[in-house]
Design a protein around this nucleic acid. Structure first.
Lengths: 173, 173
DNA sequence: ATATATATCTTAGTCACTAAGAGATTTAGC
DNA sequence: GCTAAATCTCTTAGTGACTAAGATATATAT
């Protein structure tokens, strides 16, 4: 087998493996939501809140791609579950800040423990240098996928004759 | 900074980077579904059909975790869009095989081109040996996440006093 | 002071989903 | 063979999260 052919096979295998593991990652998240008894988007918002801290309802809509109406529903449910609190901004009383209730949200966090342990075990088998390679790849991969997403959205704005004949749907602006 | 502390920081950064790129991957998929004008689960089923070839409706339910009733809806929509065909098994007339219509499904495939190009570009910067490391990691990561998912589901079956106090919901059996 | 902009919420309607069970066919037990 | 149980898909009724559009409240600009 030629050198380049070996590489092509490697690339293909790599793509399949990444796809598989990525799909399983999504499934883990769905299982967390299921076990916690909350909707998928609700969990996504908890995630954002965890990463960004205190954010406004509008920001959640922006990041998740949901409408503000949908976000109202998300927050209602999370608030009822005691996972977050609404806090009106005293400076600008139109705004509503959402913040997690740490004591309750912690319980959700615990559902990620199996995942963290699994990852610790996997990472444990790699040297620092190897981990740096993985980190570089993860960062570059992120940028690549981000660019690809933009490119794909861009298809919608290209003249219709120039794109694959498909029933195309407008994305939310 | 101590050696182990450097590693801990590296691990944390790595986790964040993987999470970010994984999330963006999910977003790419959603965008594909959006642009194609089909539901997310519909696209997931197209994916499975692409990977496994001709499969039964029941198999789709199994793999996606949806009920058979939901799968009936998925197939109805995909069939109406001309993306798949229903074919009754002549050996066992209860079964319905679903197969993609290549000419139409190709158009969906094209929506993955931006992603493939982006990945080619990223992978291009790595040697064969580095790619093999990435492959090893992807495979081990998959196994790890799979195990974590099972462990998490397992929490549901452990005696209630022994698990985090959470409103737990039964998963579909 | 009035108009315009911004941030969240409300309402009505839609769509994919589940649970339960019906219909059609196959397999097993006698 | 014949009946009973099992298997596979589909149907039905009801639920819940979503969007679109506009209402409400507050802030900013002219």
């Amino acid at each position: 087998m030629s050198r380049t052919k070996a590489r092509a096979a490697l690339l293909q295998e790599l793509e399949a493996a990444m796809r598989r593991s990525s799909a399983q990652g999504v499934l883990y998240g769905q299982t967390v939501a299921n076990v916690a008894g909350i909707a998928n988007s609700d969990l996504e918002c908890m995630d954002i809140l965890y990463l960004e801290g205190r954010v406004t309802a509008g920001r959640l809509a922006e990041v998740t791609g949901l409408t503000t109406g949908a976000i109202t529903g998300v927050i209602d449910r999370l608030e009822k579950a005691g996972l977050v609190r609404r806090e009106r901004d005293e400076k600008d009383r139109r705004k509503v800040f959402i913040s997690v209730v740490p004591e309750t949200a912690m319980k959700i966090g615990q559902l990620y423990v199996p995942m963290q342990q699994a990852m610790e075990k996997v990472f444990g088998a790699y040297s620092d240098e190897e981990l740096r390679l993985l980190l570089r790849f993860a960062n570059e991969g992120y940028k690549g996928v981000l660019a690809a997403t933009e490119a794909l959205k861009g298809l919608l704005d290209t003249p219709p004759e120039k794109r694959p004949a498909l029933k195309l749907k407008k994305l939310r602006p």
